[in-house]
Simulated assay, not measured.
Amino acid sequence: MSKAFASTADTAEKKISFTQLGEGLYAFTAEGDPNTGVIVGDDGVMVIDTQATPKMANKVIEHIRKVTDKPIKYVLLSHYHAVRVLGASAYQPQQVFASDATRSLIVERGKEDWDSEYGRFPRLFLAADTIPGLTWPTMTFPTKFTLYMGKRRVEIMHLGRGHTAGDTIAWVPDAGVMFSGDLVEYHSACYCGDAHFKDWPKTLDKIAEFNPKALVPGRGDALTNPTEVGEGLKLTRDFLTTLYGSVSESAAKGLSLKEAFDRCNDAMRPRFGNFAIFDHCQPFNVARAYDEAMGLDHPRIWTAERDREMWAALNG
């Protein structure tokens, strides 16, 4: 019996948590679904990653309104993936921030990614007909800039490639809290279909240099103390190095992609097989790792058609 494609069989509603990490700092999480971060400043609110549709974003807004009535002025896109950005219109922000590289990826593959992710994980696209179109940043930056939300300073930085070529983090120095996007995951598989495996661990090193007291990962529970942050960084690193180590070894031996996939599953499943979305991610992860090991630096574009073909070829 073949596996249901990606997460099409995942229809169960997830329990939402809204965790406070510091004064005016919150994590909207839902048992391995995409997370959203919230920063409350003196004069307004920033949202980091928006959910996939305006309808889904309204769930975040409901929780924000329980803790503040300040206007939601800013949206930060940690990267370009549809489940992270297409709900932005619900917040009616004054500004939408993204790295230069993220905007370039939206230009290159934003529509294809939208179609791809909707096909992979339809539950996350509640009321998809409410999405007005691609989300475009109103302001971009090469590597970093500082935003003052009244007296509260927020450092917004592209530390290096990892989950995508344009990953952006938000750092709140007064509380020692970081919002990492999908550069860090917690008891959730890293999605690596657009990854840069050789760069990602170096970017994790840069995150660790901040010594965060707390961190909001892309998926999984909020990390509320330095011990949990350290665990999240280690699990993410171990996931990546185990995956790429196995696949690059297979490629060096001249094994096929299917053979590399089977060997990688054997290497990873004992430790990571119970992580959220592990089976969903694995074919796309191995395909990208194989490409990088074979010298392809720029990830190929995933389309809804390519998704299905890859899934059938590797899970068949």
Rank of each mutant, 00 (worst) to 15 (best):
G162H: 01
K234I: 03
L77H: 04
L105T: 09
I72N: 02
D115N: 12
P217S: 10
M46W: 05
K55M: 10
H158Q: 11
R65N: 08
T146F: 00
W302V: 02
T11Y: 08
D43Q: 13
L159A: 09
Q51P: 07
A4E: 09
I61F: 03
G181Y: 06
P283E: 05
K66W: 11
I61T: 05
E259K: 05
N315A: 00
T224I: 15
Q20Y: 06
L77T: 04
D69R: 02
Y186F: 14
Q94F: 08
M157E: 13
E108F: 03
S89H: 12
L204F: 01
K73G: 00
G176V: 10
G230A: 09
A208K: 10
V75N: 04
I48N: 00
G160S: 07
E209W: 12
G44V: 08
A214R: 03
Y74V: 10
D129V: 09
C192H: 00
A9S: 15
F121V: 15
S89W: 08
N211S: 15
K258M: 06
A90W: 06
A101N: 07
R263M: 09
A251S: 06
R153S: 14
H196S: 12
G316M: 07
P93D: 01
T130G: 10
D307V: 10
D33R: 11
H81L: 13
E292F: 02
P283T: 09
E259F: 06
S256M: 05
V40G: 01
H187S: 11
I106L: 02
T102K: 02
D194I: 11
C190H: 11
F275Y: 14
T143I: 13
G245V: 02
K213A: 14
A6M: 06
L21M: 07
T50D: 03
I277F: 14
H158C: 06
G160C: 05
P137I: 08
G273M: 03
G220E: 04
T8M: 04
N58I: 00
S104T: 07
K73A: 00
K59S: 14
L21H: 06
G44D: 08
G254F: 11
V184I: 09
D182F: 07
R271V: 15
V45C: 03
M149Q: 05
G41W: 05
F97P: 04
P283Y: 00
D266E: 14
P270D: 09
A90S: 05
H196M: 08
P217A: 07
K206Y: 03
V172Y: 02
Y74P: 03
H63V: 03
K66M: 14
D297A: 15
G166H: 06
V40Q: 04
W302C: 01
R65A: 03
I39L: 04
R263W: 00
T143M: 12
T146A: 11
T143E: 15
L124M: 12
T8S: 07
E112R: 08
A165H: 11
K258A: 13
L147F: 11
W171G: 01
E305Y: 08
G162T: 04
R161D: 07
A82W: 05
Q92T: 12
T11K: 13
